[in-house]
Design a protein around this nucleic acid. Sequence first.
RNA 1: CGGGACGUGGCGCAGUUUGGUUAGCGCACUGGUCUGGGGGACCAGGGGUCGCCGGUUCAAAUCCGGCCGUCCCGACCA
Length: 477
Amino acid sequence: MSKGLPKQSEDFPGWYQEVVKQAGMAEHGSARGSQVIKPYGYALWENMQRALDDRFKATGHENLMFPLLIPYSVLAREEEHLEGFSAEVWTVTQGGGKELEEPLAIRPTSEATIWSAYSNWIQSYRDLPLLYNQWCNVMRYELRTRLFLRTSEFLWQEGHTAHATRDEAWEEALQMLEIYREVAEDILCVPVLAGRKSEAQRFPGADETFPIEGMMRDKRALQCGTSHFLGQNFSKAYDVKFLTDQGEQEYAWGTSWGWSTRMVGGTVMAHGDDKGLRLPPAVAPTQAVIVPIYKTDDERTRVLEVATKIKDGLVGNGVRVKVDDRDQHRPGFKFAEWELKGVPVRMELGPRDVEADHVVMVDRVTGEKRTVATDSAIADMASVLNAVQKALRDDATAFRDANTHEAATFDEVREGVAAEGGFWITPWCGDAQCEEKVSAETSASIRVLPLEREDPGGPCLVCGNPGTERATWAKAY
RNA sequence: CGGGACGUGGCGCAGUUUGGUUAGCGCACUGGUCUGGGGGACCAGGGGUCGCCGGUUCAAAUCCGGCCGUCCCGACCA
């Protein structure tokens, strides 16, 4: 653990890299672009994973596992899909030291293998819907990598569903988008815009892509999760037909949806400050830490005894809590370290506190320090954690709102994006050429369009033709 | 993949321009004493062959070539 972080305002990328490293979340693997997720980062991932998985199960989905390797010819069957991914695909050409007859692609995503299996699994409308999900690793060849945000290999969840009707598939895609929104906002405290992608930004092979987009503390956007309505594109490419109750052959309707370890980085960047991480209590690996303070051995014994009692009480209430009884560090050092690691609540317990039967409680989000009776420190911890959760969400929401602007003209967006960053909402005609022009000149892209088209209230910012969309532009990760 | 910077104990760096004895420093680490309510002090220790490969030379961390990797900006992307 080294001392000090670059200031966010002076060097945000440097701050991010350092905080991820110093907090013990991840580091680079020995192959280019790979990453080692360390226990503290992995614990955060497990907690968000659980929040998602519980919701998937509650909505009737089952987990399964498909192979990492996909025969190249299988991947190539959906043209648009292959075209979209070809630059990112890793291919295995040898096995056992010999050239393979057919190269194997390492999955960049699994639509291809899964739909080729679905063609065997689906015969009748009675076989539908298929509501499956897998937690797995995928690989994409990447030229520029950053821990969590973009690495060659990453962990994610990919849901793949097949339905008998268009409407049902459409509803499924939106339902999963809503689950992502809920986990992002309620669990991770990251306010997001949920909506549609423009055609240019759509997933290769999808008819419609629905993202949730959050704002990071450098005012850039991060796509936090995506749900796709696949129409019949994959069922046609992989020949997934079923017999309807009318006795007719029809192609199945599909969705797919994913959320990745990228969101660990998103949580870091959406909430962190110059002291380090600020983790949402709902997913923080450690929700509360007790720092004992003592001079003599006798004091140490007495303080640790009470600290352990408080810990046991909290554990009994389901709180993830630690007593930091390391003797090689002094309290001040521990305070700074737990702040760096973003633990939501810290309790300081010294001889004077033990004497008075109270603890000093410090909130990582507001920095507020107060003295609390030992009993209520245990009994009220759940509501304290809820309050921290809310404070973090309110803070992130206020930040996002303060950096979201309406604009009418190209000039406003160009200057706004360059000078201030953040989200810029404008009327847009829906034409890809106008979109491309803005992106080329500002390096901002359309992050999201409203789910239901809204009156943009003016002409397109580029061509001046009637606006048909309210587009939100931003620089993105 | 294009432009820029860089690679020296676990981490951060100096030394490289003007090759030359046992490669230094801070932090971290180990043992000890004093300490302990916001990143402690002192004493004594252990650890590197200078990203990798090759070349030039009496001699290479230092010069030359190739490769690998990292960071920043850009294009592409979860």
